[in-house]
Write a protein that binds this DNA or RNA. Structure first.
Lengths: 341, 341
DNA sequence: ACTCCATATGTAAAGGTTTACATAGCATGG
DNA sequence: CCATGCTATGTAAACCTTTACATATGGAGT
């Protein structure tokens, strides 16, 4: 039974007393095979413990059953949850996932391009806004691909992300509902498209509440902790201080909180602070951070579903799928302090 | 150049004016080929942009260049850092990594077993202490495998982990150096072998300091936050309270801290608390947690290196590799309070 | 009874590699 | 000058599938 060398389709055929073609058909197109024959084949498969040799199959078919997932950094805690969504969806359709990380290094990217060229992956999931294949990007013959989080610069590649405008709108609406009017947006319009969209959500919310430009304060940072701290420093040099800091992401919010605490202020007593992303530590901060949760597993699932559709249909059903993220209310927001109102 | 269908070895052979065998040799056994010929072949490869079709190669060779990594939960933040180590090491040897997660579900495990049987992976990395293939485990024909973190129950499978005894010893030595003598160990001897070893480290440290059994307090939990909280409740019902809680892992330590805070105690003022693992949030807790850092990336790298060695040699060079983990001193430990000394 | 068609199965080629074996060329040693 | 052996290359088989095409079987329609 459990021989040294795995059973092949031929072993099955011999035992079932049919040809290998029939075995193949019994497996992949059962309706094309007589009931009685299918039974014999299934028995033979059970006896031999046969499983299709994926290598041979992929070779014959000209495509593999693997999806390559490329991220700049697989150590990113964001990544692993998306991975779950990706993996579940892939596996339930008979695909496996292959992972690679580039650390934004073109040389590494190139190695993954080789992977693709050597037919090892039928599709590609990209976590980066830029094709990571250096100067060969232009001539690269890519398999069906989809982006995660951000549109992929340069390619007609569909992507799955989050509705950043709507998410930011939820935040600003909360702050306004709490009574804030002087709301600072600590942003970053350069790095990622998503960040610009969050700014748009902020502006839309302020518009809707008819809060004039005079009360809007926008600081351009770069999405890092340090830039949050810096924003506080700069804003304290002006005369009009906000009562709330709406940050483009959680990193920035952490920086802002560090800055405010360093000056001896209480959060949310003196200032309210919000983030965006819901990084894992957001819940452990003190105060815990009110933020927007990225539906990571759902994003992964959707992205993979889209890719699989692409793989079978050829045509992208839609070029952009935006999921609506949820507001997570914690303890970093309250009504504006008397002094700041 | 960039034709619709990828170049094959035959295209290269035609252009270089040699046989396909020579091309293959020029690529994989360059020393077997005349210099002049090798040059011609390399030029032809450059012209055609040829890359070896991995499917065909794996089929012919009877083994793939993929390593399957199976973990109970790839969303675990521990996981992603180890993944980096695994991936780097694998890639630098021409292997790719395939990931799967079982959620401790035998059905899922079985699907990965199919993966293996269908020759899609040359080796296996296991994050679980038990072969995740349900009842088929016994008859499963596994490729070379290595475990991560824990020995794999049941198989003669080498593994890479951390020296838990030495790690625990570092913790207890620190506590003793701070002046503690009544040190409670909040443990879990059932779930994981690693946890029993940490207990051994504790006992060894107490022995070395000649602290008698009378001063040792051991609570058997199950490694969860809740069990840490429970330990506090139980211990407060006894008459001899410890001055320090040495926890078998960070989860337990979190629970202990919750329990102590609920009773209004200050950490480390009233009681010292230590963990083990250095989970990402350990640094964000208040007070930040003194604990043992798992060298995750290094573990991943070592595990993959061991597997690759297995793959080429056939013989495991050693059956257990233990890395020495570092103590991370933060703010949850101080000298014992007067009252508890 | 004969033709035709549908259904079920078989035969063989093709997919791209690697490699055992065969061959050719050439130098070395007698 | 021939036998021998070494080096470089070529030929063809094998790895395991899938599937176009061919064939066989049986039933329906005339």
């Amino acid at each position: 039974m459990s021989n040294s060398t795995p059973a092949t389709i031929e072993d099955v055929a011999r035992i079932a007393n049919v040809s290998i073609a029939t075995v193949s058909r019994a497996i992949h197109m059962p309706e094309k095979v007589a009931n009685s024959t299918r039974l014999k084949v299934n028995q033979a498969i059970a006896i031999t413990g046969y499983t299709t040799n994926a290598m041979a199959r992929s070779l014959r078919l000209g495509r593999s059953n693997m999806i390559l997932v490329v991220a700049p950094d697989i150590g990113d805690p964001n990544f692993s949850n998306i991975l779950i969504g990706l993996e579940n969806e892939a596996r339930s359709h008979g695909y496996g996932i292959l992972i690679g990380h580039t650390q934004n290094d073109a040389q590494r990217g190139l190695e993954y391009l080789k992977f693709l060229n050597s037919n090892q992956a039928a599709g590609l999931i990209l976590f980066t806004g830029i094709l990571p294949f250096g100067h060969q990007t232009m001539t690269a013959r890519l398999p069906p691909s989809v982006g995660v989080f951000e549109p992929v610069f340069n390619g007609g590649i569909p992507y799955v992300g989050v509705d950043d405008i709507a998410g930011a709108r939820k935040v600003v609406d909360l702050l306004i509902a709490e009574g804030h009017r002087k709301i600072a947006f600590i942003g970053d319009s350069r790095t990622r498209l998503a960040y610009s969209r969050r700014r748009m959500g902020y502006e839309a919310g302020m518009d809707a509440a008819e809060i004039g430009a005079g009360l809007r304060i926008v600081f351009e940072g770069d999405g890092t902790i340090e830039s949050g701290r810096l924003a506080v420093e700069q804003l304290f040099m002006r005369d009009t201080l906000p009562s709330a800091f709406m940050c483009v992401n959680d990193q920035t919010a952490i920086g802002v909180m560090i800055g405010l605490k360093a000056r001896g202020y209480d959060i949310p007593g003196d200032f309210s602070v919000t983030g965006f992303d819901d990084v894992p530590q957001a819940v452990f901060m003190s105060p815990s951070l009110t933020t927007i949760r990225q539906p990571r597993t759902a994003i992964g699932k959707q992205a993979m579903a889209l890719l699989l559709e692409l793989l079978s249909d050829g045509e992208p059903p839609e070029t952009e799928i935006l999921l609506l993220p949820d507001l997570v209310v914690r303890n970093s927001v309250s009504a504006p302090s008397r002094a700041r109102r």
